[in-house]
């Protein structure tokens, strides 16, 4: 029987799943994902987690609970840093510990530490450690690591073509990895949705933001559609380096999109209680007002499921863009 490794469908899943999946698959390990977020999963997570965590972290707890009884291992890497001199939010750093100490009856957790702030080679070291659990052959681990990187590159390539990460993951799971055309999006305006992947692509906690906008005739682009080079270049405009990688992605992409003629508006999605989100929104709004007069909307998502508030804001926002255009 093959060994089963569970990966929660939350948080960095939306950034690194292809890498993890490619790595484990190459080692002959079966990867089990938690189910799509439902009210049940969120409720369980909220009940089990520490109460001052942000909503996405609470949701992660729910996904762990959904998985824990049907896998042999849980894969919860300790993501400290993925780029030189930059860091991921401290809550991600302590994630394996938070889970271990708050959730009873867990299978063993694979909590390799990914810390590339000083040396990029540390990434391989981390995966090699995980690989040792499944094979004694260092060559097989090396091969699996490369397979993971390849999958991750395909993922980025498809995202840069215009697919959104959750769509890309879905496509890759169906084996469609080699197309080289952009997805067809219909609509009469394009809005940049700037937010953390785990907030905007999870259709339950985002209250189906992307589909709602698409149904209103809006084409969506996100930070994930941009290459790392663009993000890097644009975020460098800040007087001081932004050392939160995820926040930097939001700022860099917003700076890029606010210059593009193809973009009609920027929506910033923040989770309530997120420190970096509270200032990325602020920085983006200030720069936007200085540079170009395109509409900006700040949406805060939290546990409330009343959709009326979100719909009102989105409708008014889209109306406003159409009005402004008609008045020109």
């Amino acid at each position: 029987m093959t060994v089963k490794v569970g990966i929660p469908r939350a948080l960095l899943f939306y950034y690194y799943f292809p890498m993890w999946n490619g790595f484990f698959k190459a080692l002959g390990v079966e990867v089990i994902l938690s189910r799509n977020t439902t009210k049940g999963i969120l409720d369980k997570g909220v009940r089990q987690s520490v109460d001052d965590a942000c909503l996405p972290v609470k949701l992660f707890f729910g996904h762990v609970l959904d998985l824990k009884d049907r896998v042999d291992y849980l894969f919860i890497p300790r993501m400290v840093s993925v780029e030189r001199k930059e860091y991921i939010c401290p809550k991600f750093l302590g994630l394996p510990d938070m889970i271990r100490h708050n959730v009873p009856d867990l299978p063993p957790i694979i909590d390799i530490t990914v810390n590339m702030s000083r040396r990029e080679k540390n990434l391989y070291k981390a995966f090699a450690e995980a690989g040792k659990l499944f094979t004694a052959n260092p060559l097989a681990v090396r091969k699996a690591f490369r397979a993971g990187l390849e999958e991750q590159e395909r993922f980025h390539r498809l995202n840069h073509l215009g697919y959104l990460p959750h769509e890309t993951i879905e496509q890759m799971s169906r084996g469609l990895v080699n197309q080289n055309y952009s997805p067809a999006q219909t609509g009469d305006m394009t809005i940049a949705l700037v937010g953390h992947g785990y907030n905007i692509y999870d259709s339950y906690i985002s209250m189906d933001l992307i589909e709602k906008l698409r149904n209103m005739g809006v084409r969506i682009v996100t930070p994930d559609n941009l290459t790392g080079t663009i993000i890097e270049e644009k975020s460098d405009e800040l007087p001081k380096k932004m050392f939160w990688t995820l926040g930097k992605r939001m700022i860099g992409s917003a700076f890029h999109y606010m210059r593009s003629d193809r973009i009609d508006g920027i929506i910033h999605v923040a989770s309530f209680g997120c420190g970096p989100d509270s200032f990325t929104g602020e920085i983006i709004e200030r720069h936007l007002r200085r540079r170009r007069n395109i509409p900006f909307l700040n949406l805060t998502i939290d546990e409330h499921t009343g959709e009326a508030g979100i719909i009102t804001r989105l409708e008014a926002y889209v109306d406003m863009i159409r009005w402004r255009r008609a008045a020109l």
Binding site: T300, G309, T312, R324
Partner: peptide, 21 residues
Amino acid sequence: QDSKIIILRNGVVADFAMNTV
């Protein structure tokens, strides 16, 4: 239960904000 500000320029909504949570 809500409060908002609407900025109009030349008779068209240029910007708005509504209370968050």
